[in-house]
């Protein structure tokens, strides 16, 4: 983002300089042409010097890994490659293999369900909390900062704790439900093929609420109070004021939160690995976990990279949507 704006600015500046230089040329006491050119070159060098750090950073830390990953996905890249440096070119074989695998449709579906479920939960709860915290009441600030807690915990810790809470026999959740006499026998949250994905989505919602809450709360603060005052004079209170004032005013922020949320959720790996490792019977296997498994457990780096690229392409679609959404919000 910042790179494109920098480049456009760098391009437009020399142009304006030239027009001014042209005017100066008509002046009999103008500086000699050589001096002018020197100054112009020096300025351009400085412009590029400001750009270079950003360009190098992008190339090293974004460009190189992406290009390397794409190249790797067309190679038979194995453990031996690391020692010998030899990785035979195999064309689309890696893609053919991972896309035709029976696991691909399972993990694609799981990825979709996981993403949609997580985003819907995080967003609805995050928005409800943001609207709630907009009111002034005692302890508002403390409660709001406590809600950030899931965000601050390392994901490994969160998933280990949740794994314990959700255990079938001695987990805290089943104990709690049992004491309330809601259930008689332990619910196999993480070991039933029909419940595991729901449980994992639940944990991910818990982790994602702080992000949604924070951004949406920030968006709400931007809405001027006068609008609500004026609205209330016209009879827009409660639900009506949310529907006709809050929601339309918040739309640009909502777009950004949703699209960023999708990109973040698509790549979730540690939570699933920590909770279920993709099990039971692949019922929580997503494209991200499958790609990890291929690369780092079966050492099929080429196939893992191919699947990783599929994920990159899906994310890219949403990244483009994000750029468009954020540009629209700037325009507005």
């Amino acid at each position: 983002m910042s790179l494109t704006t920098d480049v456009s600015r760098a391009k437009s500046r020399p142009g304006s300089e030239r027009t001014r230089g042209g005017e100066a040329g008509q002046d009999p006491q103008a500086t000699p042409t050589r001096g002018r050119r020197n100054r112009k070159t020096r300025e351009r060098v400085f412009q590029w010097l400001f750009l270079v750090p950003a360009v190098i950073y992008m190339a090293l830390f974004f460009g190189y890994p992406v290009v390397k990953n794409v190249v790797m996905s067309f190679q038979d890249y194995t453990t031996a490659t690391f020692f010998t440096g030899e990785a035979p070119w195999v064309g689309l074989a890696n893609y053919a293999k991972v896309l035709s695998s029976s696991l691909f449709s399972t993990s694609l579906l799981n990825t979709a369900l996981f993403t949609i479920g997580s985003i819907a939960g995080q967003f609805v709860i995050g928005l409800a909390l943001a609207v709630f915290f907009r009111r002034r009441f005692p302890l508002n600030g403390i409660l709001r900062s406590l809600l950030l807690l899931p965000w601050l915990l390392p994901l490994i810790v969160s998933s280990a704790v949740w794994r314990w809470i959700l255990d079938k026999d001695s987990g805290a959740l089943n104990r709690f439900l049992g004491q309330l006499h809601i259930v008689d026998t332990g619910i196999p949250w993480l070991t039933s093929t029909s419940l595991a994905l729901i449980a994992v989505v639940g944990v991910n919602i818990w982790i994602g609420i702080p992000f949604n809450l924070t951004i949406l709360y920030g968006g709400l603060q931007e809405i001027p109070d006068e609008l609500y005052e004026a609205g209330s004079l016209d009879g827009a209170t409660g639900w009506k004021s949310f529907r006709h004032i809050t929601w339309p005013m918040l739309r640009p922020v909502v777009n950004v939160v949703l699209v960023l949320g999708v990109v973040y959720t698509l790549k979730v790996l540690d939570i699933i690995l920590g909770l279920t490792n993709g099990g039971p019977a692949n019922s929580t296997q997503t494209i991200a976990t499958q790609s990890y498994r291929l690369s780092f457990q079966e050492f099929k780096f080429g196939e893992g990279a191919a699947l990783g690229d599929v994920l990159v392409i899906i994310s890219l679609v949403f990244a483009v949507l994000y750029l468009r959404a954020s540009r629209r919000s700037i325009d507005e």
Partner: peptide, 12 residues
């Protein structure tokens, strides 16, 4: 696992 002598938690 089916007859309950091993907890199905063994899966995890």
């Amino acid at each position: 696992v089916k007859d309950g002598s091993v907890s199905s938690s063994a899966l995890n």
